[in-house]
């Protein structure tokens, strides 16, 4: 494709060889960058199987660290909490996000531009600012609530879930809106001409067509929630442990092959989710 026929334009040959030399340089750069991107991941995975108890050198193969992981009640509990938060927040933010996307794509209303800005803000705002704002807000409103009713609320799984919903809604909206953009509105009109009511039209025409977009948004929300550390760290409470926060606490103390093992499992989950989302997008 790059090699234009040399017979027609003989003077191009010089440039062509220079251009392919350029492509060679670009290729070398790409290989080096890929090594840079993947070497740490390979090392991490390899050292989850090492016998070395410091987890930074290769001294032989073992599955011992994974066995110990399964026996660690604390880590297992944290993993279950993380899964619970990710599932709950994904379900809620997918429903809310899809509704919002439908409203934004189908209707024109006053304040639409403003709401659009509000929707994009959680994506671009520094995560730490959103995290500390949520912490301040929960402490502030719980304080007022206690003053007014004597009811004492605590930060924990509930506040983490609320926070995760708040920061994943926008991502769901972006993905679902993209799938609504290519939507042929005449299909809905045809369904209604044939006597379907609003709900039937939505259930049998609109929903199946935008479902890949909704699933894509849900997978993104799920991954973001599962992997999130900063917002989780700020909005969790004493006694509630979540996986990224737990891993962070242990990493701060020392590198251990056990953390290598749990990190490898987390990587595995993420990679599976990318595959799933790509697969769904291909089918679209």
């Amino acid at each position: 494709m790059l090699d234009t026929p040399t017979t027609r334009k003989p003077y191009v040959t010089g440039m062509d060889s220079r251009r392919s030399a350029g492509m060679l340089a670009l290729g070398a750069h790409t290989i080096l960058t890929m090594v840079f991107l993947y070497a740490p991941i390979v090392v991490l995975v390899a050292f989850s199987f090492t016998r070395d108890s410091f987890g930074v050198r290769w001294t032989g193969f073992t599955l011992d660290w994974y066995r110990r992981l399964l026996a660690d009640q604390r880590l297992l509990g944290a993993a279950l909490n993380t899964l619970y938060v990710a599932l709950t927040s994904t379900i809620v933010s997918t429903i809310i996000g899809t509704m919002t996307a439908l409203a934004m794509e189908r209707y024109h209303f006053r304040g639409r531009t403003g709401f659009d800005a509000l929707l994009y803000l959680p994506i671009v705002i520094p995560e730490i600012v959103m995290a500390l704002a949520l912490l301040a807000f929960f402490a502030f409103s719980f304080g007022i609530l206690e003053l007014l009713s004597g009811l004492r609320l605590q930060m924990g799984l509930g506040t983490v879930t609320i926070a995760h919903i708040a920061f994943t809604i926008s991502f769901v909206v972006v993905v679902v809106r993209a799938s609504l953009k290519g939507f042929d509105m005449r299909l809905e009109e045809a369904a209604q001409d044939l006597g379907a009511n609003e709900w039937q039209t939505f259930r049998h025409i609109t929903l199946p067509l935008i479902l890949p977009g909704i699933i894509g948004g849900a997978l993104l929300a799920f991954t973001l929630s599962l992997d999130d550390f900063i917002i989780t760290f700020f909005t969790t409470g004493p006694g509630t442990s979540l996986l990224p926060v737990e891993v962070y606490g242990q990493v701060k103390r020392a590198i251990t092959p056990k953390i290598n093992a749990i990190s490898t499992l987390m990587l595995l989950v993420s990679i599976t989710l990318v595959f799933l989302s790509q697969f769904i997008q291909r089918r679209r």
Binding site: A39, P40, V43, L44, D227, V247, S263, L267, I271
Partner: peptide, 15 residues
């Protein structure tokens, strides 16, 4: 792009 930022930073500690 999709994998945990914390884990990827931790990998550099090992290296």
């Amino acid at each position: 792009f999709w994998t945990n930022f914390l884990v990827r930073t931790y990998a550099w500690m090992i290296i």
